[in-house]
Design a protein around this nucleic acid. Sequence first.
DNA 1: TCCGGTCTACCCACTTCTGGGTAGGCCCCG
DNA 2: CGGGGCCTACCCAGAAGTGGGTAGACCGGA
Lengths: 214, 214
Amino acid sequence: MNERPKIRVLLIDNHPLVLDGLKAVLETFDHIEVAGTAGLAQTGLDIARQIQPQVVLMDINMPKLSGIDAIELFRNELPQTRVVMLSMHDSREYISSSVLHGAAGYVLKDVSTDEIVAAIETVADGGTYFSSGVFDALMGERVEEGSDPLTPRERDILGLIVAGRSNREIAEALGITPATAETHRKNLKKKLGIATTAGLIRYALDHGIVSKVG
Amino acid sequence: MNERPKIRVLLIDNHPLVLDGLKAVLETFDHIEVAGTAGLAQTGLDIARQIQPQVVLMDINMPKLSGIDAIELFRNELPQTRVVMLSMHDSREYISSSVLHGAAGYVLKDVSTDEIVAAIETVADGGTYFSSGVFDALMGERVEEGSDPLTPRERDILGLIVAGRSNREIAEALGITPATAETHRKNLKKKLGIATTAGLIRYALDHGIVSKVG
DNA sequence: TCCGGTCTACCCACTTCTGGGTAGGCCCCG
DNA sequence: CGGGGCCTACCCAGAAGTGGGTAGACCGGA
């Protein structure tokens, strides 16, 4: 196990507990080095510039800059670094978004530590790693639709929907008419294939489009 | 630090990652012994009967038996054992529910490891420990209302609301009339002080009343 | 230049939710 | 046996969302 150099890993998660825990667990493995940790995607990016990790383990649901959006930033600035997403949920859109944005792996948080180590090893070797259920979700996704990410405006609307605002309130907040807010809402539903407002909210919360504390 | 015997701790969390991480972190402290871990409240209870831990660190958001409901079971069966709740969120109802059900502490997951250790030490000594923000929430709560937890039926309704069902669909699913479903929905809102359906959904997701994978 | 995507805006009919009520039956606890 | 909580059910009027359109303006890429 120790014939090769350590894999340098950067951990990004907005829960210090998860961060400390992951760090403690991963450091029990000889071939893995936790080179840094960060609580926000943005600070993670800053740290990554300095420490040049081989692998970034990043939570997908974070306030401010979401993990999904951060993937591209990492790939642009640190093309050598491979990003593995950590997520509580196996939702289809979420997974395919990660893949489309360039994640090298996607691991559910409820898997064993061994699997996370396996994911780190695999992507460090240039491969990709996806939790079991994740792969199925991806396949199912690919055949049915092209997984269209939302437009910026649609994210605005979605955020306000989650906040419990009505079309009228959304319109006021964004300086548009209620009719337009309604159109955006309709487009969101059609695009995501979600029929209900409840579904939209769950989508948004699951996908880190809005922070729950908002 | 080592003049006193180790504090025996049982960890309960449905995320193996958190479990392993917490265990690894806590075991770096000489005076704490992680005597067992469990992924479900029910199995945690079974294990606790055998190992008789002094302190139980339990996640509040778990499938099947929620952490909140489990507090009472612990207190009934293992009165010597003190329960500290771990939670992602500082919501008022959640916190006061924990306290009312007999939790000896309430720690937010986004605190430092040191604070968790402090919580364990404090409750092991017979005290109570609450994260900073938690105390404020409790005080604010106490003056305004008695923090009524939901009735079983209301949880049913809330689960279906989160699933995106309309009042009519909820009625069909539960074998009641739409009018009754509507009444429950109204009572939920009134009881929780939440005006919008979106708010109800966020409450449900935050409080583990429904599992997000449902 | 034309096409496609985005953002804006409106029309319509229909359904659903909202927020006030009231109320009866049931069961448990004091 | 009374009170209170829970579950059930209904009334009403107004507000809001739904789902189907159409359409103009802008902008960037082929």
